[in-house]
């Protein structure tokens, strides 16, 4: 009986540790090892060359993601100072068109779904963003309404992430995603 209890305890502890550590590793979504400021991507998303961890990350946080030659997905979970993106804080995303046929920036809640908001507004793209005189853009993300391009982060108190999609990226971006200029994410203020 004592041996059985020991075996059972070992099994349960191993199950919790093994499955828990795997889920914890995948919690951050697509992520990746290539960084451009706060933006992270993986060279092998969607590819047959993907390692088991990348496949699992894709399944959890980016199912049906296209391979890099068609679309590059950058995900930011922090601002440019490395602080976690929070729904109760306001951010300015400042940049110019990345090298791609079309791009978009979309905000997602921690559960990887779109953030509920009365405006039903979740993203801006190269075809919808209002631009500055020099062609650059400023997108606000935060809980309080702001003029111009504004992505509401809802009334929640959790964290969120941003995904920057580059559809039909330029050749230099496919070759070296780490070498392209991407928008800066600056925190402005927090409600609490």
């Amino acid at each position: 009986m004592k041996l059985f209890l020991k075996l059972l305890a070992s099994f349960v502890v191993a199950l919790v540790l093994g499955v828990g550590s795997a889920l914890l590793l995948l919690r951050g979504g697509l992520g990746g090892t290539t960084a451009v400021g706060p933006w992270m991507t993986s060279d092998v998303i969607g590819s047959a060359d993907a390692d088991p961890y990348t496949r699992a990350r894709v399944a959890v946080g980016g199912l049906l993601a296209l391979n890099r030659s068609e679309t590059i997905y950058f995900t930011a979970a922090t601002d440019s100072d490395g602080e976690t993106l929070r729904m109760q804080c306001s951010y300015k995303i400042v940049g110019s068109d990345p090298p791609a046929r079309w791009w978009s920036i979309t905000a997602y809640a921690a559960d990887h779904y779109l953030i509920p908001n009365p405006q039903d507004r979740y993203s801006y793209g190269g075809n919808t963003v209002a631009r500055e005189d020099d062609g650059s853009f400023v997108i606000s993300a935060g809980p309080s309404e702001s003029g111009g391009n504004w992505i509401p982060t809802g009334e929640g108190d959790g964290t969120f992430t941003l995904t920057l999609r580059l559809y039909n990226p330029a050749e230099e971006a496919v070759r070296d995603p780490s070498g392209i200029a991407l928008p800066r994410i600056a925190r402005e203020a927090c409600l609490r």
Binding site: F11, A14, L17, G18, A59, V60, L63
Partner: peptide, 24 residues
């Protein structure tokens, strides 16, 4: 226990893509 935990970890990583695709 550590070896068994590693086995569960690897099984989870390999099985998740198939399980999530199946559900989708």
């Amino acid at each position: 226990t550590v070896v068994l935990a590693a086995v569960f970890h690897i099984l989870t990583i390999f099985a998740l893509p198939y399980g999530i695709m199946d559900r989708a």
